[in-house]
């Protein structure tokens, strides 16, 4: 009886030490998980999830503050991918975006633009060029169609057009 107890206690202690050491050295870093989640998101930086960009949202998911169904452009497909990766349950996207794909880009109407610079600051991917008092324009190759430039515009000169047009 005593021998058995000692042997098992010994095994347990050895294993416990192994576990403690490995939990210290083998843990996955949070950053890797965030990278992976970010790669599953559409990454058009539209901020519709309530976070300033896709990486902050990914970080929020990892630190367990945010739901996985907040990304309207990604749609249910993205939620499904995230659910599969995180092993959590699927639930449909809470709000629907009018831009669910990357096929639309912003277009600044030249006649109306007053060069106020507000859209330039709003663009998450620096796809708008221009300076004060001069007309701005959208670099179509870089625009992700996130619509963040539309609300700040005081003269409503920005509209969305099809990418290929």
């Amino acid at each position: 009886m005593a021998t058995a107890t000692v042997i098992f206690a010994g095994i347990a202690i050895v294993l416990a030490i192994l576990l403690i050491v490995s939990s210290h050295y083998l843990s996955t870093t949070e950053n890797e998980v965030i990278d992976k989640i970010e790669s599953l998101l559409p990454r058009i930086q539209c901020a519709q999830c309530g976070y300033p960009g896709c990486r902050p949202y990914a970080a929020a998911i990892v630190t367990d503050k945010a739901d996985i169904n907040l990304c309207p452009p990604g749609g249910n497909e993205t939620v499904r991918r995230l659910a599969k990766f995180l092993g959590s349950d699927f639930s449909p996207v809470t709000k629907y975006s009018t831009t669910a794909n990357l096929n639309e880009i912003a277009f600044i109407s030249e006649e109306l633009c007053i060069g106020c610079n507000l859209c330039l600051r709003a663009c998450p991917v620096d796809a708008i060029v221009g300076t004060h008092q001069s007309m701005h324009t959208v670099i179509s190759d870089h625009c992700t169609g996130c619509r963040l430039c539309i609300p700040p515009c005081p003269v409503d000169c920005i509209s969305l057009v099809s990418r290929n047009a």
């Binding site: 990454r43 058009i44 896709c54 990357l102 998450p124 870089h142």
Partner: peptide, 17 residues
Amino acid sequence: KSSELSNAAQKRYELKT
């Protein structure tokens, strides 16, 4: 194409931040 676009957008966003 869309994944290329996403990668580019991510990069530009990182640069901007």
